[in-house]
């Protein structure tokens, strides 16, 4: 399904090299005293309570937390889909006021345009940006090759497996050369085998592009395997209650999950989550 040869080839890719140089200064995210409340008056529901956070250019961040704790809401605030009720999100010093091509978004599933071929899906960003047909086609080819799906260029999304569709989703987001890649449980709907391969593949892509990645997940192993830093979120209203650096060496391969360092980190994460789940459980019973 995925040969290691093109992962290696990624590092040498001219676009990847160009991006790496730019990335050293772009993609800084500042979340400054953000709270997010849905609804008003009696129906008001606070999804995210006061959160401040700084993400360095090129960093790989995982937001870890139980479902419903506000991970997506926080991510959507960075993406610009949700406006913070108080506070502000800035990317490279500019305040986020809406979605934009500088922040690529990868969703859990069903986010490819079903009426567009794989090639057209990937070329969507360049196309709406008004690039020429040749440029769009060249960009699409580059990214098709990057995710190893050149053979499927003229297929429609429904003709691809879930894992392939997510690779297209990643390629489509990257085809805009964003400085930030936002991913909302992108592998959550995949089977365990495919998920592991996708994680490795994502790390290879990230290593080549050095974009800032904010990756939302509720899977502890996934968070530790991928991240430079794992942010553990507490349940309703969501807030970041732990900021755990992951000092594991890179490049990482799946065997790392059996090392003592990994286990140690996992234990720490689980303790935080367990305390949080208990609290949420008790809240529900009162």
């Amino acid at each position: 399904m995925m040969e290691s040869s093109h992962i290696v080839a990624l590092n040498a890719h001219p676009i990847a090299r160009k991006r790496r140089i730019e990335a050293s200064s772009c993609g800084r995210i500042e979340i400054d005293n953000v709270t997010i409340t849905f609804g008003r008056g009696a129906a008001a529901h606070q999804a995210v309570s006061t959160t401040s956070l700084s993400i360095a250019p090129g960093e790989f961040i995982c937001i870890l937390g139980p479902s419903g704790c506000g991970k997506s809401t926080l991510l959507n605030a960075i993406a610009g889909y949700v406006e913070p009720t108080t506070g502000a999100v800035t990317v490279d010093g500019e305040r986020v006021t809406g979605p934009g091509p500088d922040r690529g978004m990868v969703f859990q599933q069903y986010s490819l345009f079903p009426w567009k071929t794989i090639r057209e899906n990937i070329a969507f960003g360049p196309m709406v940006a008004g690039h020429s047909r040749d440029e769009c086609s060249a960009t699409a080819n580059t990214f098709l090759e990057m995710v190893g799906l050149s053979k499927f260029a003229s297929k429609y999304p429904s003709e691809l497996s879930g894992g392939m569709q997510q690779r297209v989703g990643i390629a489509r987001a990257l085809a805009n050369y964003p400085t930030v890649l936002l991913m909302d449980e992108p592998f959550g709907a995949l089977d365990a085998q495919t998920r592991l391969m996708m994680q490795e593949h994502l790390l290879a892509i990230w290593n080549a592009f050095k974009v800032t990645v904010v990756f939302v997940t509720h899977d502890v192993d996934e968070a530790i395997f991928l991240a430079d830093r794992v942010l553990v979120m507490s349940a309703s209203p969501g807030a970041i209650m732990a900021d755990l650096p992951v000092p594991l060496p890179r490049p990482r391969d799946p065997d790392i999950a059996t090392t003592a360092d990994f286990m140690q980190l996992k234990k720490k994460c689980l303790e935080h989550i367990r305390a949080e789940s208990l609290k949420a459980f008790e809240q529900q019973n009162h």
Binding site: A79, G80, Y81, G98, P99, G100, P101, R103, G104, M105, F107, Y110, S111, L112, F113, K116, F124, G125, V128, A129, R172, A173, N176, L182
Partner: peptide, 19 residues
């Protein structure tokens, strides 16, 4: 989800309608 995807890819309102 598709509208959001299109927005984050830089599509204008008209482009979202058309595509």
């Amino acid at each position: 989800v598709l509208v959001r995807a299109a927005k984050s890819l830089g599509a204008s309102r008209l482009q979202i309608f058309r595509h």
